[in-house]
């Protein structure tokens, strides 16, 4: 009971936040009614996907303060599970998605156990390494198409196929991911108020202190990492059905991992709205940059420069990102 109440209860946010959030939610819901280019639509879907990746990252990375730069491996596990099962055995999304989550969570326990013995930068680097290793394995693994990847060909199905999540028009994908997005917000809203949520913030605050308050620090981190992983894997499964063409290079690359972490940090690590704000800034920016630079060869890589710039700004100015700035201004006003 209290679980449901906590998930639905946003009353600790000021009215202004809730008004803005409500307005944004409404805009999202009616967004497809506007005459849109397919470019705007796909950018919007990307935004929602990355907001969800960011929310998942935010549990362990934001509330827990464990900078994780290996989320792409779980995008990959989710995407590949769904794609392989659909292509080989015609298993629908709603079955393969939870199975993907199981695989991803199992993998997260296997690597989380040793990884969380590491601290700070070592942990971050180790997450990169495991992600790259998994990508390398997928690149030579024939069963999953090796470096060529997998292709879900929509001709074989009869879109709209709600079981397999195969659609011709993006609007279906939009509403599905929007549904996940709202569920994701409710979940994180519950999480941040759960015992584990508080314990994680205490761990981020001071680990010895957390231990002396009866918190099994290692286990709390592993559990949260599994939660983050589940989130990412669900969206990975969706990604397979939406993109239909997955390769290790674009589902599991380091770029994706960094983008996920960076976005959440830019918006505000450790806050409910942070990852959404971060995705709202970075994803359109990235899409438009790519579109705009598409014709101008030689300027590729500008997104990397942009990332570097953001990292510098965050670390120098406000570690808690855009949301941190907003909160600071509010505190100053109140004081």
């Amino acid at each position: 009971m209290e679980t449901i109440k906590n998930a639905l209860d946003f009353s600790d946010f000021p009215r202004l936040d809730l008004t803005v959030a409500g307005a944004v939610a409404l805009c999202l819901i009616i967004f497809p009614l506007f005459p849109l280019s397919s470019f705007a639509m796909s950018t919007m879907i990307q935004f929602l996907m990355f907001a969800l990746y960011g929310m998942g990252w935010n549990t362990i990375g934001g509330y827990g303060g464990q900078v994780d730069l290996g989320k792409a491996q779980y995008v990959g596990i989710g995407a590949y599970t769904t794609a392989v099962m659909l292509i080989r055995w015609d298993i629908p999304f709603w079955v393969s998605m939870p199975i993907g989550v199981c695989f991803a969570v199992t993998w997260s326990f296997i690597i989380g156990y040793p990884l969380f013995r590491l601290k700070g930068h070592y942990f971050a680097i180790a997450t990169i390494a495991t992600s790259l290793v998994l990508k390398d394995i997928f690149e030579v693994w024939e069963f999953v198409g090796a470096a060529r990847g997998l292709e879900i060909s929509p001709i074989k199905y009869h879109p709209p196929d709600f079981l397999r999540l195969i659609f011709r028009e993006d609007i279906y994908y939009f509403y599905f991911i929007l549904g996940f997005f709202f569920l994701g917000i409710l979940y994180i809203n519950w999480f941040r108020k759960s015992r584990l949520g508080y314990q994680l913030r205490s761990i981020k605050d001071n680990e010895d202190m957390a231990r002396s308050l009866g918190i099994n620090v290692h286990w709390a981190k592993i559990k949260t990492y599994a939660i983050a992983t589940g989130f990412v894997s669900v969206v990975g499964s969706f990604h397979a059905c939406y993109i239909k063409n997955i390769e290790p290079e674009d589902t599991m690359s380091l770029d994706i991992s960094i983008l996920i972490a960076l976005m959440a940090m830019l918006g505000g690590a450790g806050s409910l709205w942070g990852p959404i704000i971060g995705a709202g800034i970075l994803i359109p920016l990235k899409s438009y940059l790519k579109e705009w630079l598409g014709a101008q060869a030689g300027l590729v890589g500008i997104d990397l420069i942009l990332y570097a710039l953001i990292i510098m700004l965050i670390s120098a100015y406000e570690p808690r990102g855009v949301w941190g700035i907003i909160e600071k201004i509010r505190r100053r006003k109140r004081a």
Binding site: G65, S202, D205, M209, R320
Partner: peptide, 10 residues
């Protein structure tokens, strides 16, 4: 703790 550093935002 004698020396306590609150690094977080609680």
């Amino acid at each position: 703790f004698q020396v306590y550093v609150a690094a977080g935002d609680l």
